[in-house]
Amino acid sequence: MLSHGGEEDWALKIDAIMDCCNDVCLAGKTQIQGLSPCMKGKRLSEATLTLRTPCQELDDICYENNWSLPTYHVSPSDGGFLADVTIKGVDFECSAGSSLLSNPREARESAATQMIAKLQSMAGQTQ
């Protein structure tokens, strides 16, 4: 059982420990370009930099605008793959193609990226 003086001593010790931890974290921020050693996270080399694929983004664009979902056609060509994507809106139909890529998924994502850029360009011309 702690005496009344002992409880005050514990409170002071806890405050001192918290201050020390805060000092360590603050010192680490200046040493590691804003990253505290108290922070738990991934290194840049391990980071997930994109959460959505271009195909998912294009699906979202079509869904949000009540357009038909994209239709993809992927085919082998010269040791790689080519992909085309087509979408239909209320007043347009648009197609875009990929460059030659080493696998079908990359070709499909390339076509979606081209389509997104084309839609942005078309939308900019009408404004």
Rank of each mutant, 00 (worst) to 15 (best):
M1C: 08
S3R: 13
H4A: 12
G5Q: 09
G5I: 05
G5N: 10
G6F: 02
E7H: 10
E8Y: 08
W10S: 10
L12M: 12
K13S: 15
I14T: 12
I17Q: 09
I17C: 06
M18I: 11
M18S: 12
D19Q: 15
D19F: 12
D19V: 08
D19H: 14
C20T: 07
C20A: 08
N22C: 12
N22W: 10
V24Y: 06
L26I: 07
T30Q: 12
Q31I: 08
I32P: 02
I32M: 11
Q33D: 14
Q33V: 08
Q33K: 13
G34C: 04
G34N: 03
L35H: 13
L35G: 08
L35I: 13
S36Y: 02
P37D: 01
M39W: 11
M39K: 13
K40L: 07
K40T: 05
G41L: 07
G41M: 07
G41C: 09
L44T: 10
A47I: 04
L51G: 10
L51W: 06
T53R: 02
T53M: 04
P54T: 03
C55I: 01
C55G: 01
C55S: 02
E57T: 10
E57M: 11
E57N: 09
L58H: 01
D60F: 10
D60K: 06
I61K: 02
Y63F: 09
E64N: 11
N65H: 08
W67M: 06
T71L: 15
Y72K: 03
H73L: 15
P76F: 07
P76Q: 10
S77K: 13
S77R: 10
G79E: 07
G79C: 09
G80Y: 06
F81Y: 15
K88C: 06
G89R: 00
G89I: 01
D91K: 11
F92A: 03
E93I: 04
C94E: 15
S95Q: 11
S95C: 14
S95E: 11
S95L: 08
A96P: 01
A96K: 00
G97Y: 06
G97R: 10
S99G: 15
L100I: 10
N103K: 12
N103W: 08
R105Q: 13
R105V: 05
A107V: 04
A107E: 00
A111P: 01
A111K: 00
A111S: 05
Q114G: 06
Q114E: 14
M115L: 03
K118G: 05
L119G: 00
Q120H: 15
G124W: 12
Q127N: 13
